[in-house]
Amino acid sequence: MVDLVNRDPNNINPHLQCQFEDVLAEPDGTHSIDCVWTLSSICFNCWKGCCYKIMTLLCGCCIAAEFGCRFALLSFIHIWYFTPMLKIFQINCGLCKNIYTQCINCYIEPLCIAIGSIFHHFKK
């Protein structure tokens, strides 16, 4: 069910919380007439709300559909392409690791043991 009261439950857009007082402010000593300040606040909030509602009415469903398709495509690509390719990579890396380990155990380890035993006989 869609929550019609809390429409940003994950707090994704805190940077967009903008009120009249966040945009316009008159410092002490520079004040307009009280009715102008009050009407400016009303106009700001009215136009901000109306324009947002009109834009969402005209574009909201289309944009939501577009992003729904994009996320469906993203999920599809990850499920049917990237995850299997990662598994192939992991299998091949496991094979390379086994080959590398065998080469180290067969060639490098005996050489290091032989060289170590030569130096083992040297004493102070």
Score class of each variant (00 low, 15 high):
91 I>W: 05
122 F>H: 15
6 N>V: 03
34 D>W: 01
10 N>F: 12
111 L>E: 07
80 W>F: 15
24 L>T: 05
28 D>S: 10
70 R>A: 15
16 L>F: 11
33 I>Q: 10
52 Y>W: 14
28 D>N: 07
45 N>D: 09
84 P>R: 09
88 I>W: 06
116 G>A: 00
76 F>S: 06
79 I>M: 15
88 I>S: 07
82 F>W: 07
110 P>K: 01
2 V>A: 08
106 C>S: 10
16 L>S: 06
54 I>M: 09
113 I>K: 09
52 Y>N: 06
55 M>Y: 05
123 K>C: 02
65 A>F: 14
117 S>T: 07
116 G>H: 00
120 H>W: 04
121 H>E: 15
25 A>K: 02
83 T>A: 14
48 K>A: 15
87 K>P: 02
39 L>F: 11
34 D>A: 05
21 E>F: 05
44 F>M: 02
37 W>K: 01
124 K>M: 03
78 H>K: 12
22 D>H: 12
42 I>A: 04
20 F>T: 01
32 S>G: 11
17 Q>H: 04
95 L>V: 09
32 S>L: 15
4 L>E: 08
91 I>C: 06
68 G>S: 07
34 D>P: 00
120 H>P: 00
15 H>F: 06
1 M>N: 14
20 F>K: 00
117 S>E: 09
53 K>N: 14
56 T>G: 04
27 P>H: 02
116 G>V: 01
17 Q>N: 10
64 A>V: 09
31 H>A: 13
101 T>R: 02
85 M>T: 02
102 Q>G: 08
113 I>P: 03
45 N>P: 03
70 R>P: 01
52 Y>T: 11
79 I>R: 10
41 S>H: 06
87 K>I: 02
9 P>C: 08
74 L>Q: 09
122 F>T: 06
122 F>E: 14
78 H>M: 04
102 Q>A: 15
113 I>S: 13
73 L>I: 12
69 C>A: 07
110 P>A: 07
75 S>K: 09
116 G>T: 01
48 K>Y: 15
107 Y>F: 10
108 I>T: 05
